[in-house]
Each structure stands twice: as structure tokens, then as C-alpha cells.
Amino acid sequence: MFNYRTLVSTITVMAFLAVWEFAPRAGIVDATFTSQPTRVVAAGFEIIRTAGFLHDVSVSLSEFALGFTLAIAVGVPLGLVLGRFPVLRYVLDPPIMAIYATPHLALLPIIVVWLGIGMQSKIAVAFVSGVIPILVNAMAGVRGVDGSWIVAARSFSAREWDVFVKVILPASLPSVILGIRLGLSRAVLGVVVAEMYQSQAGVGNEIMRYGSEFRTDYLLFDVLLVSLFGLTATSAVRALEERLWTAGE
């Protein structure tokens, strides 16, 4: 359990925290700008007790959950279908690649113009950010399916639907999950940045406010909260991925 690698990693983290804590105390840097681990923890306790905190968290979570669910609901089926039918791919490939190449956050102003500064615009940003990697990976998964599996299915008189359900779907599942994992972190980023840009509530909104008030401790606590959420969710998907690979390889 406690091997060489974890030991080195732990020491590195501890050293970083120690420098962060003691550099301001020694007067090397100004804690107003850098904060300190103990201050961030203290800020955390205060933030949790503030009236708006739970509301902000639930707003951000709802925006993320709705936008990302929508991204999965659209991206996975569309990607699978595009992977399977070349003609559709030829039609939709240019617009998809155009959106893929566009820094999606550059679309923020126009999304706000269309949908306002409420939750709708954040849901839209989470969707746009998440859907592309999900779609592209689902498509790649289908295109990577071994042709001999399809021929084998056909040799047993499989119809197109059977081929899809019994070969294409299970064979491309690892790719689909990978796309979901990549889309997830982009959707989290999308929600937070969208809230920082124009919003009335949410964790991104808090981060922006604390920033403008020079409350570095508070700001860092919220940032930590977001990365913790992203890390946990991503690890959960990765665990699912690994189980699929060990079962399927």
C-alpha cells in the first residue's frame, strides 16, 4: 500500500503546503495575494455557513447536471449514428469539426445574448462544451469496430439492428465512456467560466465576487471545491472505464 511512489508524492504535497503556509509568515510573500492553507480552511468554514452558499452550489450543480445529461443524450446516439452511416458523416462533419476547432467559451457572449444571464445560458454552455468530445469519441468508437465481428454477425443472418446492438454498441462502449470522461471536465469548466462571465448565482459567480473583493482565501476555497468535484466525477468515470477494459480486452 504505502509504496515508494505514494511516499514521494505525499512528501511533495506536504512540502508544497508547508511552503505555502510559512512563506507569508516569514514575510517572503504577502498573504493578501497568496493566502495560506490554514486561512483557506478557515474561509471554507465561513463560506459553508453563509446564506447563499448552498443556493450557489445547487445552482451550479443543476446547470452542470442538466447541460451534461443533455450532452450525453445527444452526443452518444448522434456519434454512434454518424459513425455507422458515412453519408450522414459527410453532411455533418464540416459543422462538427468547425465547432470542435472553435474555442467554445468564445461563444459565451452570443449564448448570453440568446438565452440571458440565468441558468439557461450555463446549461447551454455545459452542453456545447461537453457534447463535442462525447460525439467525436462515440463516432471514432464505431469506426474502430473490427469489420470481422460484423461479418461474423452477418454470417448468422444478423439484421442491421442486431449488428448495432450486439456488435457496434458493446465494441464502441469503451470509446463512448472515454468521450464522457473528457466531456465532463470541459462541461465543469464551461459552467464555472460562464458563471464568472455573466450570472446571478453559482460557484463561478462567488469566485468572481470574492476575486473583486480581494478575498483570496474565499476564492481559493471555491476553486478547490470545483476541482474536487471534477476530480471525483472524473475518477468515477475512469473506474467504470477500467472495469470495461478488463472485462473486454
Partner: peptide, 16 residues
């Protein structure tokens, strides 16, 4: 058809 079945050179087994 159901009256014929094929065995392939590359086995064509589903790894999952």
C-alpha cells in the same frame, strides 16, 4: 441463412 455457418480464419470472436 440458417442452413450454413462459417468458421473464420481470424476467429472473429467478440473480446467482450
Amino acid at each position: 441463412g440458417r442452413d450454413r455457418a462459417v468458421v473464420f480464419q481470424d476467429f472473429a470472436l467478440m473480446p467482450w
